[in-house]
């Protein structure tokens, strides 16, 4: 049971990065369907940086650098993807869906390329990411559940909490939400809509990128053998599931993680039925989506101008 919870948390946190990033992006009115690609690119950049560092450092590896360098590279890679997306959708006014899907194609290509070229060689780097807090073992199951995780897990929670705070309790958050809800009003209030959309998308993509890194380095222990775009789509599902609230995302992501791996921990589930269990996160999301649209409670709806472009009226 403890092992199940620990696993669910570890998997859930990779979703959490993605969903927090996508929530921030969507709050600005951008429905970025490139998130799976962004997470792939994030993972690729981080892994590649780790590979370079470990190669360069040979035996004198600084654990802190071994974690920090890939994280920075991932953030950079993710932000760059966000920049491309924003440039195309805001500056060049392209269709958001088409741009996002193209970025996914591109990102999946990049990560597949990485897998094929460098394969599952990241387990060496992975141990720096999965290092638990030293006192975790002394605290029994409690320690296992709360303190046995690698740094990225705590980072995910921290980012989700900070994002939630920024979105609901700061002026920047207020402005950002107004951009996603009603850009014309935001514009009239003197808010630079384009700048907010650029910033939110780049920051959101950078965070989402970390999800890719976390999945490869933490959850897979560096054994990167298959494409990870599925976690991107789960992250998008999670945004809906948590009705665009990053703090709910912490619980939501653990629920998703649990649903995703539940089949392996329940005895008596056939090999085949496990696949049906993996369907659950999507089914649950669909139910939530339909349910919120029926209830039509304004607070739980997608940002009103999600997916819509905004240009100041042409006269």
């Amino acid at each position: 049971m403890v092992a199940f919870i620990v696993s669910a948390i570890r998997l859930g946190m990779t979703f959490l990065f993605g969903s927090t990033g996508e929530t921030i992006t969507e709050k600005s009115g951008h429905l970025n369907l490139g998130i799976p690609g962004v997470m792939c690119v994030g993972a690729s950049c981080g892994c590649f940086a780790e590979y370079l560092y470990l190669t360069a450092a040979k035996r004198s590896v600084e654990p802190i650098l071994a974690v920090l360098i890939p994280i920075l590279a991932t953030l950079l890679g993710g932000a760059l993807m966000g920049l491309i997306y924003s440039f195309l959708t805001v500056t060049l006014r392209c269709n958001q869906n088409v741009t996002g899907l193209t970025l996914t194609t591109f990102g999946v290509g990049v990560s597949d390329f990485m897998i094929a070229k460098t394969g599952a060689i990241y387990s060496k780097g992975s141990k720096y990411f999965t290092a638990a807090l030293p006192f975790a073992d002394d605290l029994g199951w409690f320690g296992k559940i709360f303190f046995s995780h690698g740094i990225l897990i705590y980072l995910a929670i921290a980012i989700a909490l900070i994002s939630s705070f920024v979105l609901s309790k700061t002026r920047i958050g207020l402005n950002l939400r107004s951009v996603g809800e009603n850009p014309a009003t935001a514009d009239a209030a003197g808010i630079n809509v384009a700048r907010y959309r650029y910033m939110a998308t780049c920051i959101g993509c950078a965070i989402a990128g970390l999800g890719g890194l976390s999945f490869v380095m933490d959850y897979l222990h560096g054994n990167w053998e298959y494409c990870i775009d599925a976690i991107g789509w789960l992250a998008i599902a999670l945004v809906i599931f948590t009705v665009w609230k990053p703090n709910l995302g912490i619980i939501g992501s653990i629920v998703f993680g649990a649903l995703y791996i539940a089949s392996s921990y329940i005895t008596g589930v056939s090999f085949a039925s496990k696949e049906l269990f993996k369907m659950l996160p999507y089914i649950v999301t669909i139910v939530v989506l339909i349910f919120t649209s029926i209830r039509d409670k304004k607070e739980n709806q997608p940002p009103q101008s999600l997916g819509l472009p905004y240009f100041r009226e042409e006269r």
Partner: peptide
């Protein structure tokens, strides 16, 4: 020009660049 899901106060302070904490 109001944001539907915001409260009255949130709409009132929207876009203001006041000094100090929000």
């Amino acid at each position: 020009k109001l944001v539907d899901v915001f409260s009255a106060t949130e709409n009132i302070v929207l876009g203001l660049e006041e000094k100090g904490r929000y």
